[in-house]
């Protein structure tokens, strides 16, 4: 292998067909309100964690739906589960359970349960 001083840049494109959508499937089954998110961003706007960091629950949910889950595991830990997002959500998405179910899906994938 030759060192060229650069590498093939990673594609930013979401490759939906290849992406792992297990977390999404798991959350959709266990918290159906996950399906009704319209990405309005109210959750992120009110988020306690987003006050201090770039944690973006709206985007996180979307990334899970698209199967872009590489960073989700670390990102999701930033949530304090305080519930402001749930109170603010206009679509009644059970955001706290979405977080909990994402956690569980990640753990189950690591344990090869799903």
């Amino acid at each position: 292998m030759i060192e060229f001083g650069y590498n093939i840049a990673k594609d930013r494109q979401i490759d939906f067909d290849k992406n792992d959508k297990r977390i999404s499937t798991y959350v959709r089954e266990n918290e159906p309100s996950f399906k009704t998110c319209i990405s309005c961003g109210t959750c992120t706007a009110t988020c306690s964690a987003a006050n201090f960091t770039d944690f973006n629950f709206r985007k996180l949910q979307l990334m899970v739906r698209r199967g872009e889950t590489l960073e989700v595991k670390e990102e999701i830990k930033k949530c304090m589960l305080c519930g402001k997002c749930y109170l603010a959500c206009p679509r009644g998405v059970n955001t706290r359970n979405v977080i909990i179910q994402i956690n569980q899906a990640i753990e189950k994938i690591e344990n090869h349960d799903i």
Binding site: R12, Q13, I14, D15, F16, D17, K59, R66
Partner: peptide
């Protein structure tokens, strides 16, 4: 482009 994700996307 999934404009809400801020990323281009391809899907079959």
């Amino acid at each position: 482009e999934d404009t809400l994700a801020g990323k281009p996307m391809k899907m079959s």
